[in-house]
């Protein structure tokens, strides 16, 4: 069972490499019961979007 610290690490790595099946299942299980990590996950997506916007990429 993943704790929040391990979960945030995987949520970050998800942006850099494809996760294994096992990792994806473990993440999903944790996210179902953890609102903090669910928010973290959404915020990672938002931060990436903001960075792309700075980079002149207007495509949404």
């Amino acid at each position: 069972m993943l704790n929040c610290k391990q979960t945030t690490k995987l949520l970050s790595e998800k942006q850099d490499r494809p996760l294994s099946f096992r990792e994806r299942v473990a993440l999903r299980l944790h996210l179902i019961m953890c609102s903090g990590c669910t928010n973290y996950d959404r915020q990672m997506g938002f931060i990436r979007k903001a960075c792309r916007r700075i980079g002149g990429d207007d495509a949404k």
């Binding site: 704790n3 929040c4 610290k5 953890c34 609102s35 903090g36 990590c37 928010n39 979007k49 903001a50």
Partner: peptide, 24 residues
């Protein structure tokens, strides 16, 4: 931000940002 077990401290738990995209 995490306790000894690696779980968020209550005060440190990431908040709901609502719809942040408007901020862009």
């Amino acid at each position: 931000l995490f306790d000894d077990g690696g779980y968020w401290h209550k005060a440190a738990r990431p908040a709901d940002w609502g719809d942040p995209e408007a901020a862009l």
